[in-house]
Amino acid sequence: MNLFRSEEHIARWLGGRDPGATISVTKLSELANAWWDDRLAADWVPHTREQNMAILERLGLTSEFWRLP
């Protein structure tokens, strides 16, 4: 789960491996905010799979790649 300068850098880094998923850093920041915002809350309890899937879907990450087990 890395940051890159561009698609060209990603392709070169993959070196022939199958690519995963690429999103903008802006989308990543939105994902991180939704995913981790409550992590230090005193009343934190684990997110359910449904809660996490709802975060992904709200951000348009709906492909099979983003489907949680």
Binding site: S6, I10, I23, V25, L28, S29
Partner: peptide, 22 residues
Amino acid sequence: VEVRDGRPDDESLLFHCLVPAA
């Protein structure tokens, strides 16, 4: 990357995730 109010200052960068969520 500077993060201000939850947003990155350089929006040109890309994030690549190699491993599927499952």
